[in-house]
């Protein structure tokens, strides 16, 4: 059956067939290589496919957006990454990009224009919200989703002001949503941003993700919804530290939607 054989084409393949996709799915390093985030990439790709969206990825032609290098202070490496990516994106005449990583989203959307890369960029929660609004995806709640709490990532929330799209998606699942004490513009970081993901913490008395997971657990939610591969890593680490990985799950919103569509 053809629909069981979802094929994810690259831009190069598309171009060879003289086709252009509706949207480019920017996968990012985590989505490409991190085992947990790969599952999110697959879930989101499947949602695009089920919605009938024609999309493609860059495959090996994609590189890191440069966000962690830039925030670490390494502008040279950032510029190398960014300019190479912009060359590629412009060569394929890409107009619209969707990504499941808020760091990629931020850099593509806010930082590439100064370097000559102008695109319409969506975070995958915004894109999914549109697909549901336009009826291309239909939610069918699969039973009791239970209590869910939502963790605002800094780069989607506080930095880019998007608090609603992810919440709309979660509430469409008819879940019992419990907000954490610090949410929306007061949301607490997971501890991974600003290239912290790639180094040990400075001396202190606690890890940031421990602080955050404690707050998430206080809500009594069985599912922690996230929108960022790095947040997912940090929150899952926190769960392991608290030995709660058996009864609490961290899910990307796209995974939650995939479990609840017609």
């Amino acid at each position: 059956m053809a629909e069981n054989e979802m094929h994810i084409p690259t831009m190069a393949e598309m171009q060879a067939q003289d086709k252009a996709p509706e949207v480019l799915f920017w996968v990012g390093c985590a989505g490409s290589f991190d085992a947990r985030a790969q599952r999110v990439s697959r879930a989101f790709a499947e949602l695009l496919w089920r919605a009938g969206v024609s999309f493609a990825i860059l495959g090996n032609e994609e590189g890191c957006t440069g966000d962690p290098a830039r925030r670490a202070g390494n502008e040279f490496v950032f510029q190398m990454m960014a300019l190479q990516n912009i060359e590629t994106l412009n060569m394929y005449n890409v107009k619209t990009i969707v990504t499941a990583c808020p760091h990629c989203y931020n850099t593509l959307k806010n930082e590439y224009p100064d370097l000559g890369g102008m695109y319409e960029v969506y975070h995958h929660t915004q894109y999914l919200d549109q697909l549901i609004e336009s009826g291309r995806l239909k939610i069918q709640s699969s039973g009791q989703p239970g209590k869910i709490t939502y963790h605002d990532s800094c780069y989607l929330g506080r930095v880019n002001g998007e608090y609603e799209a992810p919440r709309k998606l979660i509430s469409s699942l008819r879940a019992d949503v419990r907000e954490m004490e610090r949410s929306r513009s007061n949301g607490l970081c997971c501890g991974a941003g600003g290239a912290q993901m790639f180094k040990e913490d400075e001396p202190g008395d606690k890890r940031v993700n421990t602080e955050r997971i404690e707050e998430a657990l206080e809500t009594g939610a069985g599912t922690i919804a996230a929108n960022c591969p790095f947040c997912i890593t940090m929150l899952e680490d926190g769960l392991k530290e608290k030995d709660r990985q058996e009864d609490v799950m961290v899910l990307d919103i796209s995974e939650m939607i995939l479990n609840n569509i017609k």
Binding site: M6, S32, F33, I57, E62
Partner: peptide
């Protein structure tokens, strides 16, 4: 980043996640 274009030095292809769909 300089050598492989990604934050981790991984031997896999960047699109390999699609193969395990």
């Amino acid at each position: 980043l300089e050598n492989s274009g990604s934050v981790w030095q991984v031997p896999d292809e960047r699109g390999s996640w699609t193969k395990t769909v």
